[in-house]
């Protein structure tokens, strides 16, 4: 029924953007391309101000994803939970659309009697286990994030542990913003293993500005360039399936 892949951006930040495009608009752009944007706000002793909160929720909302504010200690558990939740959410969306095609316009899973719902859920579970997943991780490396970066690294390794327990394939890429020269810098290209992060993360430098919007835009183009490369190699049928998502 559904053989495409699930594509997500996972944004880890601790506050408000202050440069470039509106991140909420960029998240909406991602959603239009079938990529969901999830946001995790990391706090330590400092509290994220209201403006930052609104932006975090706004990005996830318009990006069709999930958002959560956590203390740094709870980051590992949260990162894997948010990713998983967003994945299930996407699959449910797809299943709902399929159901609507079969049962008529207004029917969703919730309109089925509870007994039938169980069978649909089994399909959703099955897909969640086997579907191909691409996660692009965007890490805020503005000055205030400096001492949270070791925790972020731990959380990302933990995420790959969780996702690699699935039967389906995973691809990860890691970008940081602001980068050394540009707004955004790719520190890990698409790979099924996140372990190589360990050495890269310790060398990261942190900078002053927070260009969240441009970061999401660059992330999007990374998905696209990856896709076009793929379709060149395997023919065009794959990208068609992705678009049906």
């Amino acid at each position: 029924m559904y053989t495409g892949k699930i594509r997500q951006i996972l944004l880890i930040t601790d506050g408000c953007s202050n440069q470039g495009e509106d991140p909420i608009a960029m998240a909406a752009l991602a959603k239009e391309q079938g990529i969901s944007v999830n946001v995790i706000g990391v706090m330590e002793q400092d509290v994220i101000d209201e403006k930052g909160m609104t932006e975090i929720e706004g990005i996830a909302m318009s990006g069709g994803g999930v958002s959560q504010i956590v203390y740094a200690q709870a980051l590992s558990q949260t990162v894997q939970m948010v990713t998983r939740k967003a994945m299930t959410q996407t699959i449910q969306g797809v299943v709902n659309r399929e159901l609507q095609q079969i049962l008529g316009r207004s029917q969703t899973i919730e309109d089925l009697p509870p007994e039938k719902r169980g069978e649909v859920m089994e399909v959703v579970d099955e897909l969640g286990e086997t579907v191909e997943l691409e996660v692009l991780i965007l890490v805020d490396t503005s000055a205030s994030m400096k001492h949270k970066l070791p925790t972020v690294k731990e959380a990302l390794l933990d995420l790959s542990l969780s996702l690699n327990a699935r039967t389906g394939d995973n691809q990860f890429a890691v970008f940081v913003f602001p980068g050394k020269k540009n707004d955004v810098e790719k520190i890990l290209d698409w790979t099924p293993k996140l372990q190589s992060l360990t050495s890269i993360f310790s060398q990261l430098t942190t900078g002053g500005i927070t260009p969240t919007g441009p970061a999401i835009r660059t992330a999007l183009s990374s998905f696209n360039s990856k896709r076009s490369l793929r379709s060149l190699m395997t023919g065009d049928d794959e990208s068609f399936l992705e678009e049906s998502m």
């Binding site: 299930t88 509870p114 649909v120 859920m121 959703v124």
Partner: peptide
């Protein structure tokens, strides 16, 4: 609703 359905599946 889906998490309810999922748990019900397990309980069944």
């Amino acid at each position: 609703g889906m998490s309810i359905t999922s748990e019900v599946n397990v309980l069944r």
